[in-house]
Amino acid sequence: MNLPPAPVAGTRPLSVSTGSPRGPRRSRAAVLGESVLEWVIRLCGISAILFVFGIFFFVLREGVGFLFGGLKLGEFFFSTEWYPTSLSNVRYGVLALIVGTFSVTGLAMLIAVPFGLGAAIFVSEFCSDRWREGLKILIELLAAIPSVVWGFIGISVMNPLIQEVFHVPVGLNVLNGALLLALMSVPIMVSIGEDALKAVPDSFREASLAMGATRWQTVRRVLLPAAKNGLLAAILLGVGRAVGETMAVLMATGHAVNIPKSPFDPVRTLTATIAAELGEASVGSPHYQVLFIIGILLFTITFAVNLVADLVVKGTAKG
């Protein structure tokens, strides 16, 4: 069937080894190696799923004894009494810890959301290119500071500062933790928020500016509505990060199981409790198991927050 190509005048006919359109066969080893590699790539691809399930499975596995043994759901969620090591009166109520987590997170968001979104709008819409580059690099570096360093800053810088400014006896409290968490979660808000604003087509801006609107009017009337899903996702990811933060809140919030009545009260969060007590709880004891159950609780909260953020972003992609 295959007629050999007729040689063209002036060009050398291709030698047989180079000439077959099918090419010389690649060596069997090369073909085999490639298919093995592609399987490895596939395996790595699905590894993320395995790890997420693995985390859930192994954390639950360590805590499951408590789930079917000592767990009293009512006490667990609605009691503020956390006496896991008491000899006479063991209590595993995590309400105070949950309230602690959300009070610190909430206050942090109260500070971080306006600043984060404001910075995102500034970087994306009001800034010259040179300033933008510089600011983004600084914000990136801000994100790189390890949480234990933040915790140290909380103890060594914020603590005396809060005592001084607000005339309170102790500076390790909700406010301290919230300030740290705000600084920690702003970078992620700025970068995701900026992406969301950048995703709004330039034609929207041009159309608005052409009608004589100022930049700010454009931002408020056109960009914010158009980018609202992305900005919401930015906030949610910031919340997720704040809820899961461990070292900074462990060091800076005063470490007292307590329902806070003011920002100057010390609290303890879910994450800090695990970090502080896991080292002392003996493996397999109810105390040890309940810490893993708290881990599952944290996993579930952050999973839900991330899932919602993802769905919200996917909503933007469609709209």
């Binding site: 809820v243 461990t246 994450t271 944290l298 996993f299 991330n306």
Partner: peptide, 8 residues
């Protein structure tokens, strides 16, 4: 996976 708290 990126959102799982470090303590978990």
């Amino acid at each position: 996976l990126a959102g799982v708290p470090s303590i978990v």
